[in-house]
Structure formats: C-alpha cells, structure tokens
Design a protein around this nucleic acid. Structure first.
Lengths: 135, 135
DNA sequence: GCATTGTTGAGAATGATTGTCATGCCGTCC
DNA sequence: GGACGGCATGACAATCATTCTCAACAATGC
C-alpha cells in the first residue's frame, strides 16, 4: 500500500508546479528552501517510485545525472532547451513507426526506444545570438 | 599533438576487436587480462578523447554508466540487443527528418538528438522464448 | 643523444546514488 | 479516541563510477 505522507505530498506538490527537469539533489534543496525538510534518501526513493509508476519522466544528462519532471501519462518524447530547460512533450508517432520498422527489418523483438531532442529555444536563441537568424 | 603511446595503441586495438559496448571499467580489466597494464585514468581519458573525435560511440545505460564501442564515422544510431549486446548501426534518415521538423515547428535551433533502440535479437529471442513467435 | 612537452598512473577526491536500521507516523481495527 | 502493525523516514555510512593531482615517464623533433 502507498501511504500518503507529508513528504510524498510535498514532493508531489513541488513537481506539480515545477515545469523543468530537476535533479533529485535540486528537488531536495527546493523542498528545504520551502521549509519542507525531506530527507535526501526519501527524495530519491519517492522520485524513483513515481518514475516507475509513470508519473514523472526521467532524463539522463551528459554526465549521467538523472533529472525528473512531472509528465503526461503514456509514452512520449521531449524537446528540451539546453539553456533554460524549457520542455515540450512530443507525441512523436513518426519515431514509433521508425522504431518498429527497424525492429522488423533486423528481426528484433521487444524493442524499446529512447529519443530526446536538445536544442535552444527561440527566447534563448534571441538572447544569446542577439536576435540574429541561425540554423 | 596526439602522441601514439603504448597505452593508446593497446586500447585502440582492443576496441577494434570488441564488437559490443563496454564500460571504461571493463575495458580497463580486459587490457589487464591481456597483460597490457593501462591505468584506469588513462582508459577514461583516452576513451573520452576518442568519443570527442568521433572514433567511438557512447551509450548510457539505465543507471548512468557510460559504455563505449568502436563505430563508423558520422552521425548514426543503434539497435542493441539487451541480452547479448549485439549492435546494429542505423543510418536513420527518418529520425533526422523528424528531429529537424520538430525543431522548426517549435522554433528551436541547434537541436541535437539521441535515439537508441534496445530490444532482443532473433537468436536470443529463439533461445529465450523457445523459438516461438512473439511480437 | 637530448631537450621539450604531452602522457601516464597510483591514489586521493568528488559527487550522485544506495544501503542501513532505529524511530516515526499512517491507516485500521476496536 | 486509542492501541497496534508495518511501511516510511532520515541521518549517516557505504558504494561506485568518474575526475583530479602531480611527479615520473616517454614520444617526437632536431
């Protein structure tokens, strides 16, 4: 049984109002800043349970650190701004089709796939490149 | 300038004959087993340099550990068997088109993407599922 | 050969994540 | 309302991949 504790409520509430991907360490700090003391181990445990339950998405950045974010149920992908963290959820049917076609072509079964896009959003591009066009 | 040292040669030779993704720790152990003592730090440094140069591919497994593998030059994706590690390199033009279309739709620039497929190859499927069909 | 300078390696340091286990609190039953 | 059983918590230790440090080393150019 999943008990609804103060800690889990606090973390769920925090994720509800946090639009960007955050590490477990960051979430722990944010809770502390908000006066909600929640143990680091509890943050890790809870966030992992939520990931398994499909309530949050997990993203691994370049150095292997795990980032979490509240997400819509169901399979989808992301487009993330590497500057500000702004995230767009993608249905990505084209990717599903590609993955299943490749799997068939090579006689693979039970094929899962990961597909993430990382770029720079319009606002950050304007700020960084001074509004100039850039491919 | 890049000097050709005994250590780099040994690592390059090892990667040349290693078809599957291996962690830096594993590569270090394999070198030791082969009588080629190469420091762990050197393995990490060398493998990272090779990754930057595009001579090896990097793959992050679920727990964040980095795996390396000799690869063809140029951008491509992978289809990996989660049982035996068998790897197929994919040109994946469909993914490139999808990524660039999504980037345009959302006004993102400088968009990189990752896309990896993980499944079970025909041989392993036959071994595991007893040769029966399975989607 | 010899100097120059990038490279190596042993071990310490880092930092995220996980394990430990006594204590605490939620849900339940009375 | 109050007791109880057991999952949940948290402070801290432990783990483990990866990076750092820096003196000793060895390619390369001459």
């Amino acid at each position: 049984m999943q008990r609804m504790t103060r800690q889990r409520t606090a973390l769920a509430d925090l994720l509800e109002v946090t639009p960007d991907f955050r590490s477990a360490q960051q979430l722990h700090q944010l809770l502390k800043d908000a006066g909600q003391n929640v143990g680091l181990a509890t943050v890790y445990r809870t966030v992992q349970a939520m990931a398994e339950a499909g309530d949050v998405d997990v993203l691994r950045i370049e150095d292997g650190e795990a980032l979490y974010r509240r997400c819509a149920r169901g399979h989808h992908h992301h487009l993330v701004c590497r500057e500000c963290g702004k995230t767009v959820e993608l249905a990505g049917e084209a990717v599903e089709r590609w993955a299943s076609r490749i799997a068939q072509e090579h006689d693979f079964v039970d094929v899962d796939h990961t597909a993430e896009l990382v770029g720079i959003c319009r606002d950050c591009a304007a700020r960084i490149y001074g509004g100039g066009a850039r491919a």
